[in-house]
Design a protein around this nucleic acid. Structure first.
Lengths: 187, 187
DNA sequence: ATATTATACTAATGTTATTAGTTTTGCAAG
DNA sequence: CTTGCAAAACTAATAACATTAGTATAATAT
């Protein structure tokens, strides 16, 4: 009937990303259906379900790295960190499905994935060290910073904040408070 | 052969909890096998897979609430919050599988689950308000606090912290920095 | 023009969850 | 003590999904 549907890994992964961002359950069957193809045909482009997840993780990690990197150019200090925090949350809200994949720990062999994670940490490390933190202090500070913004975004996405009080304001205050505390601890 | 294996919902849920805490994939098939029973027999005690997940969520939420409540008795202020943060992390490390279920948003109809979540927030609200925060300020502060500790624990559990630097120290500093910032913002 | 390779297919298998309907046990009421 | 009943376990069957093996065909390179 139709050998040659013109698929490519790029198309498969991007379509999968759209589906999970839209909240649709992401199964190989549904993905194949969406692409007008039979399920086994996907195996020509991705290594099964695990492979698809790996690709989504990599895709999301790179995209997120790109966002926070761009958010940080031209600014420094707390201002830069606030910009990064806002870019991070904006990405997660815009791509809730893909965002969830970015959190997966890289497999030891997955050099590309590891690299994307290290680059993201590198962006933060540069900002903190320019603020006068020693490298080791910076690592602690980055861990807390990442924890705060990821935690907020994750709870927000999972309906963890029930009360009718402005979430933007809560986020702004949380980031601000943490940075104030870091500043106080540095002196 | 063996009608009457002596199962009860309690046993089913606790066994499921043990399995997911041990990192084993939690399927009804595996759970039934573990209990020495056929899969459909589980339906006498839980309402399918969704029902099991709901029970695990409730079980975990109550357990976690119990831990943080006990951690907070007899102490107040930042000391109490640090105790809560430590109890929270200890629970997550001890019960990684169950912890993941506690994060699920309660279904609107699930009054028991909603109540457990509100109680947990209530514990934190009491502490913050005794520290002099207005109710609305307290909500913002609680959101940030929960975000920080959940985010840290979640990243830690998912291998998000790669570098060989003491995690306990990072956690201690993160909580301390945040509380310092809250304190500064309150005056 | 032909050979090759990649892509998509059909067919088949195994796992899982779920429902329907059946048997049997343990307990309670007469 | 017997009889009846509800609950708990079972078997059987169905549907969704992922995966593998093997086959056909189209695009491309020779």
């Amino acid at each position: 009937m139709s050998p040659r549907a013109g698929l490519t890994q790029e198309i498969v992964v991007r379509t999968a990303a759209k589906m999970c961002d839209a909240g649709e359950p992401l199964t190989l069957a549904a993905l194949a259906d969406r692409l007008g193809v039979r399920t086994p045909s996907l195996y020509n482009h991705i290594d099964g379900q695990d492979g698809l997840h790996r690709e989504l993780t990599l895709y999301g990690s790179r995209e997120l790295l790109d966002r926070i990197t761009r958010a940080a150019v031209g600014v420094s200090g707390p201002e830069a960190l606030i910009a990064v925090a806002n870019a991070y949350r904006a990405f997660a809200r815009q791509h809730p499905g893909v965002y969830a994949y970015t959190l997966r720990a890289p497999s030891p062999g997955d050099a590309e994935h590891v690299a994307a994670g290290e680059d993201a940490v590198g962006v933060l490390a540069a900002i903190f060290e320019l603020m006068g933190l020693e490298p080791e202090e910076a690592i602690h500070a980055i861990r807390g910073f990442r924890s705060l913004i990821h935690g907020f975004v994750d709870l927000e996405m999972n309906g963890g904040f029930a009360l009718p009080l402005d979430l933007d304001e809560s986020y702004r205050r949380a980031v601000e408070s943490y940075l104030t505390g870091i500043d106080a601890a540095t002196e």
